[in-house]
């Protein structure tokens, strides 16, 4: 599974805002230049971005393996016609699928190289005021709570299997598992909100100060160039 890994690569040293801007610019450029030439240039760039995060293309693709069937089925089904296989239509959809793959690879580099606290600070920089504070704190909570809830569901599933749950209908099993999951989650929510109040939960906690460094300048210029390239 893809997640943040501490390191000292080029991508790790960039400001999170730079990395977000570069990703968005890459998406814009990929949608604007869905041609063989454009995508070839963007492939080189994507590989460079992955290298800057010390991430191999294979592990990045493996992390997104669940999206791959969709990307493969798209061109196949679009090419199928009553009279046979239409190569030009399949090729066009294939280019669209490939640009999505490139975008996924670039976002893998961000996920790999950016810790939660920096992402949170970037969110609160981009969305000011209480909505930003809500998004920032909520994001941090989701990171913290997700492993707990996944473990809850896993325990519930093991207990169900030990009690011959496989003999039950699928919707009954779903309901049993989900009731347990929701029950645990609501219980955790009540305890969690009590703990937050006990610790002076505030709208304006202290976050790491974000500063653009010398390295960010070329990366930001690249992002601006990609975004502008969409216009031509």
């Amino acid at each position: 599974m893809l997640s943040y890994t501490p390191g000292s690569s080029l991508a790790h040293r960039l400001d999170p805002r730079t990395k977000l801007a570069a990703q968005i610019a890459f998406v814009v450029a990929a949608f604007a230049h869905t041609t063989p030439g454009g995508l070839a240039a963007l492939t080189l760039l994507a590989l460079g971005i992955l290298a800057s995060a010390h991430l191999s293309p294979y592990s990045a693709i493996y992390a997104y393996r669940f999206a791959l069937p969709f990307l493969l089925v798209g061109p196949l089904i679009e090419g199928l016609t009553l009279g046979g296989f239409d190569l030009t239509r399949a090729f066009e959809t294939g280019l669209a699928s490939y640009r999505v793959l490139l975008i996924l690879l670039v976002s893998a580099a961000y996920v790999r190289s950016t810790p939660v606290r920096e992402s949170r600070a970037a969110i609160q920089w981009a969305v000011p005021g209480k909505p930003g504070a809500f998004l920032g704190m909520g994001t941090a909570f989701v990171f913290r709570l997700l492993p707990l809830l996944v473990a809850d569901l896993k325990r519930a599933r093991e207990a169900m299997n030990a009690r011959l749950a496989s003999e039950r209908a699928v919707h009954e099993r779903m309901a049993l598992l989900a009731v347990t999951g929701v029950e645990r989650a609501l219980g955790r929510a009540d305890g969690f909100s009590l703990a937050l109040r006990a610790r002076c939960f505030a709208w304006n906690p202290t976050l790491p100060a974000l500063t653009f460094g010398r390295l960010d300048l070329p990366a930001l210029a690249l992002a601006a160039g990609l975004a502008l390239s969409a216009l031509y």
């Binding site: 968005i24 997104y64 999206a67 969709f70 976002s107 893998a108």
Partner: peptide, 21 residues
């Protein structure tokens, strides 16, 4: 979007938000 593995199959990242799903 910022990296919590919450999408189907434990995926994360802005890419999922502009991907097939």
């Amino acid at each position: 979007a910022v990296g919590a593995p919450v999408f189907a199959g434990g995926e994360a990242g802005i890419g999922s938000l502009v991907g097939p799903t």
